[in-house]
Write a protein that binds this DNA or RNA. Structure first.
Lengths: 130, 130
DNA sequence: TTTTGCGCTTACATTTTTGTGTGCTCCGCA
DNA sequence: TGCGGAGCACACAAAAATGTAAGCGCAAAA
């Protein structure tokens, strides 16, 4: 979002890991507050900025802009400006992003299941304590 | 890592999203600099702290400890302390984490493929410019 | 008998990066 | 004159990653 300091250990580690591991690279691309949701909302359809915004709970214009830009740079989202007045800008998923869809669905499944497991474990330990 | 300020918009958004979306929850758990690598290295085997450390490029003790603690809290990694001297501490994947393995492998595949796509796109645009 | 070392963790201080808030722009139309 | 769509610029707060140093329990070395 802001610029990175290219000499920081943080940046160096990040690059090293991205470099030798596809999944770190993947999560690096997907890991912003709104990215996954944006992709999810764009699945199977084209939306314009304002429509996308309505569908995301509590995003500010700024955040949406920023994350869309990054997704565009990462090649997941394609931005089309229609030269009308007022300008109309539409977003849709790239081929690559479409291929990612099954993966994030599994991630979703796993997430729900894991949350369940964790909640039960939580209840259990509460029960033991009492 | 540090504590979160519970009233910040950041925290509130995070919780909202985690709450209504399994994959955001999943990525929230998996999204630290070293988490995926740790899981990956622990796949199919048990390792102790120092062994793990050797296998990760350039991690500090501190980072490793922190991330392991979070993974433990998230229920992905199980920590076993052997009461010897000097203490021996071993880590292995939880059942939940094991179920995640196929997903992260796909993510890995996708990551590699996508990186390829992006690199080609990059070359192409360079070629066009020249 | 003091000193050293191992394997792992914690406390405290800092630096980087990420996420937000606010205000401003540009362009025609009503 | 004001509105709506789609942002951008600048300033700041919060969270994540890192660095440094110290601690602990006890055996083996000096």
């Amino acid at each position: 979002m802001g610029k990175r300091k290219p000499t920081s250990t943080n940046t160096i580690n990040r690059e090293t890991l991205i470099d030798f591991c596809g999944m770190v690279y993947a999560v690096d691309i997907l890991g912003g507050r709104w990215k996954l949701l944006i992709l999810y909302k764009l699945e199977g359809r084209t939306l314009r900025f304002s429509e996308l915004k309505k569908r995301l709970p509590n995003v500010s214009d700024r955040m949406l802009t920023l994350h869309l830009q990054e997704l565009e740079k990462s090649g997941l989202v394609i931005r089309t400006v229609h030269a009308e007045v007022p300008a109309r800008v539409e977003y849709h998923l790239s081929e690559s992003a479409r291929q990612l869809a099954p993966v994030w669905k599994q991630l979703e499944q796993w997430g729900l299941a894991h949350r369940d497991v964790m909640e039960k474990a939580g209840e259990l330990s509460v029960a033991i304590q009492s």
